[in-house]
Design a protein around this nucleic acid. Structure first.
Lengths: 329, 329
DNA sequence: TTAAGAAATTGAAACGTTCTAATTACGCTT
DNA sequence: AAGCGTAATTAGAACGTTTCAATTTCTTAA
């Protein structure tokens, strides 16, 4: 920059002004730009960050990229940040709460502009001075969490199954994250069942790595292809897919005898064989919202939870193309 | 840091020494650490980067995260970099060659320590002074590219099918990246067919978004469940999966009448229904190799291509559990 | 006890920006 | 032509580290 200033015959400050869009004569502007071009000058963002304390970098902390929801999120967050001129530092925790804390520590060390995280550590130590947005799960009372409207998603699933004629329902939930927003899917589902007077059984697996308990339940409650229930809501598409295969194995006809709805609506699972009706999460919208809440530090008061609308999408494991999401619940 | 120095009653330089592991008395070391603790001091990496020109950050540029190969790669690269004390800046190009160039430009501006990229732009402008490793595809004569041993993978596929009794083979290839390392799969496959005197037809789709041409071919060459070929090698598992479904639709029995092998071996596809025999890529190893080549700037001379070993894995769409990868080709 | 040598510590000058207050140049009005 | 207000430019002090030559302190051996 010093060289550019000398080459252009102006002062250091002027070069800085030109590069930051501060007022300058067309002539000087041109002189500086030419000099910079000739010298192949590139601004040094570290020196700049040192002075401004602004790094145009945010950290994205995720448990893994293997689950479709996670890598879709990663892609969407990265894209949205880039659109705003920010870079993404990606960190993977492998569902390990210690690694989560490590990531936070590492990242705070680096004077970044914010953190977007999906973590499982209930008592994460995070510096209150650094903007933080969580996804799917609260971490800290005053930290904004953005997620799908899981509760309403559960309601939609119940409404859809009931509208398609189901009389006896089943809710299946797997996954290790307790007390997360995701947990509300079951609550919404059960609430509707209750109101409508539809019996509903729940099988909830928090710590199990395997689906075996679900399979055992199915085997116990299906006899000669006749099931004791006629509708299942699985809390993820991934699970729904495996349940569908198990049902096929047990000679249960879908959707004739039993109807199935999953949750997520990411192409990866929905288009698999068989494709499954589902509650679609607005991943891209979640990403965009998280980013804009994070970057918008104008309002000092932030919402503590933002739920984004989900919708029901029929893919053949429920009867008909019922547009339940338009129902006024 | 100034405050820490004052608090500990030592000079600025000493504090720096302590934090960088330079020799210091146990006493001073303790004094400095206590002071730092009391003041909640954290080193500022931007100031440090300014001085040392070392940022402990590398950029990872990928077309997308949706393909299993890509997100596995992203995860493995991130983990490996973290293990080495580096941070990962993730950038997604959406297969757009302009965006690729943009990413490179952005990243060069930021004085990072290196770039790992999987790009499609044949004439990417990249600053020779910044360490660069590409994956799956060369970009620039003197830039190191690491990939699976795709040629040998093709050979393995052919060997496996032939060892399982195939007499008339088919090679199917889809994907937009021309002239990449991936392209060598077909070459290896055909070479073995030639040597062994096995007839082999190839259907190569470079620009097609859809599989329709493959389906049309299959429909034309299968009559009443009897196919004119008895073995297929698909250049990805994703494709293999769809071909398998089409074959089922055409009442072709797999593996009895036609055997199928895919390529990639990432859980996402192999465990789908039906699971498919495949050539497994060592994703994690690719990631580790890319990182270590990138970080190891000691040797000024770098290899221009590094091929990592693949292996054949039977999953039921080929007959028997033939361990072809041990064959001495 | 002292001199020499090694080890630890210090002070000040970088690194490449931005920022602020001060200065200079410019265009108008009287 | 002088005076005034505004806009553009400048000089130099930060920002928080590292680095290196110079200095001090500590060890050891004569």
């Amino acid at each position: 920059m010093k060289d550019v200033a000398r080459e252009a015959g102006v002062s250091l400050g002027t070069v800085s002004n030109v590069f930051n869009g501060f007022p300058a004569t067309d002539l000087t502007r041109r002189k500086v730009q030419n000099a910079a071009e000739r010298l192949g000058y590139r601004i040094n963002n570290y020196a700049r960050g040192l002075k401004t304390n602004k790094t145009y970098t945010v950290a994205l902390i995720l448990p893994s990229l293997e689950m479709p929801f996670f890598h879709h999120l990663a892609e969407a967050v990265t894209a949205e940040l880039m659109r705003n001129g920010y870079r993404t530092i990606l960190m993977i925790t492998y569902y390990d709460t210690d690694v989560e804390q490590q990531c936070i520590d590492m990242v705070e060390q680096n004077k970044i502009d914010g953190i977007i995280a999906l973590t499982y550590n209930p008592d994460l130590q995070v510096d209150a001075s650094i903007p933080f947005v969580s996804i799917d799960r609260h971490c800290g009372a005053s930290i904004c969490c953005v997620s799908s409207d899981n509760y309403h998603g559960g309601e939609l699933a119940a409404e859809a199954l009931i509208a398609c004629g189901c009389k006896k329902l089943l809710f299946m939930r797997i996954g290790s994250d307790v007390a997360s927003e995701v947990d509300k899917r079951g609550a919404g589902f059960q609430a509707v069942c209750q109101t409508r007077g539809i019996p509903c059984e729940s099988i909830i697996l928090h710590d199990s790595e395997t689906d075996a308990p679900f399979y055992r339940y199915l085997e116990a409650h299906v006899h000669d292809g006749i099931a004791e229930f006629d509708g299942i809501f699985c809390n993820t598409d991934r699970l729904a897919l495996r349940i569908l295969r198990k049902l096929a194995e047990l000679d249960v006809r879908v959707p004739e005898d039993v109807q199935v709805i999953g949750f997520d609506g990411l192409e990866d699972y929905v288009t698999q064989e068989p494709p499954c009706s589902t509650i679609v999460q607005p991943v891209t919208f979640i990403a965009q919202t998280a980013v804009s809440v994070l970057l918008d530090r104008e309002n000092t008061v932030h919402p503590t939870l933002i739920c984004l609308p989900v919708r029901y999408e029929a893919h053949g494991t429920t009867k008909g193309q019922v547009s339940v999401w338009q129902a006024n619940i």
